[in-house]
Nucleic acid binder design. Structure first.
Lengths: 232, 232
DNA sequence: GTACTTCTGTGGTCTGTCCACAGTGGGCTA
DNA sequence: TAGCCCACTGTGGACAGACCACAGAAGTAC
């Protein structure tokens, strides 16, 4: 086993044992190196991995905010992994779409069952209205679209689902932009997408999980079909 | 932007541009460092992250197999991320279970629609029978159980779903073992789980996607409830 | 009491060195 | 000539030591 893997294993053991909690700091790199009898670069490599996985955040300087602080960002690591694999071209778009359908349909159903926070719903609606602004270019439209979907999924309350979908965000935005360019009458389609978003939010607001799920499924698959993205 | 992040960005750009393909090697660490005008430790940190994400595999020595080779293991990175977050206690088991339900239910539905390969089905059945062996200890039972689930999901044909669930494998195995210990009459429960597995495979074999989906959902949620894992 | 300066601890980075490893090819031996 | 052995070479793995930038904390001057 390589040195940085030993360091990683030690830290992971500490995490499992509850040695540190969110917001606390790991020992300094130099201290950790001495404690484990390894060099600082080896410790750094382990910390880099933890950072890439969204387990810690590092900061220079002194004081409470400096050093490697435990954070809670599952999306970071999952997102990076999905992004890199899509970049390397091994994941087909149809798989990304199907995965979205499964996870978002479930998330929206959960959201309908548990949402009670009107402020959160208002935030989601704000993203829909931002999309509906006239003369919005496609890139900005898609950004708002993604914000809407992620925010809605967050209402479902499942951190893992949220993390996976956040990770897929860049990959999704990429195919949606491609698809939007391929659509004949984009303004009409954009308006329809906004209307579908509103319908989904409304279903969630009245706690109609089954309908919200059905609408979300149709929303994602409908655009995929219309844009002809599956015909490659 | 930190040095290793610049290196990572450059490599990612190369990946997106198709500069290297699966099985090929990245330039040597020293060459990469000189090319980008950075030090070798910075390059190493970037490669460590790629390795942790399942993008490359590194090997010492010389010859074609040495160096950082591009691989295609989405499961590795996703798995590590899920494992570490479960270890740090930020991902509740209930989220893992719910995510399984959504993805596996969908995957098994897809599998029912497309499976034509009897050999693949036979492989899945073999895992069920391995689980049914008498006097199997819990750890071995769970390993076969995981093999079964992953192999079945693979029949669905979605690489991303398979990667995510493969990544969750260790986390799932961990909670199942915990749950098995908590079950009163384990042998009876184990037999029931095997029977449920058989029923799912049968539904897939006769292309009854809706039933396979329902059974899978009930299978995963049923054990979770019976083992009392949601009562923390 | 306030504002400035210095100190201290932190990660960020680089240089240089040595080691272990594995394939390659030349040279030696039978 | 055929086969084997061994040095060579390129690779990642690891370490020591140094210096820098940064940000808060402590001390000092006014």
């Amino acid at each position: 086993m390589r040195t940085h893997e030993r360091v990683l294993a030690r830290i992971e053991t500490g995490l499992s044992a509850g040695k540190w909690s969110i917001g606390e700091r790991l020992p300094a790199e130099r201290a950790l190196a001495e404690e484990l009898g390894v060099s600082r670069p080896s410790v750094r490599e382990a910390i880099r991995i933890l950072e890439a996985m969204g387990i810690v955040r590092t900061a220079v300087g002194s004081g409470p905010s400096a050093g490697a602080t435990l954070i809670d960002r599952p999306a970071a690591g999952l997102g990076a992994a999905v992004r890199l694999h899509v970049a390397s071209g091994t994941l087909p778009v149809s798989d990304v779409v199907r995965t979205r359908v499964l996870l978002e349909a479930g998330a929206v159903r959960d959201a309908a069952a548990r949402v009670t926070d009107d402020a959160a719903l208002a935030r989601v609606r704000a993203h829909v209205e931002a999309m509906a602004a006239p003369d919005l270019d496609v890139t900005a439209f898609v950004e708002h679209d993604q914000d809407f979907h992620i925010e809605l999924v967050r209402l479902g309350g499942n951190q893992l689902v949220e993390a996976i979908l956040s990770g897929m965000r860049a990959a999704v935005a990429s195919y949606v932009v491609t698809g939007a360019d391929a659509v004949e009458a984009w303004p009409r389609t954009a308006a329809r997408l906004c209307a579908e978003h509103r319908a989904i939010v409304d279903a969630v607001a009245r706690h109609d999980g089954a309908e919200a799920e059905r609408l979300m499924r149709e929303h994602i698959e409908g655009f995929y079909r219309e844009a002809g993205l599956g015909e490659h």
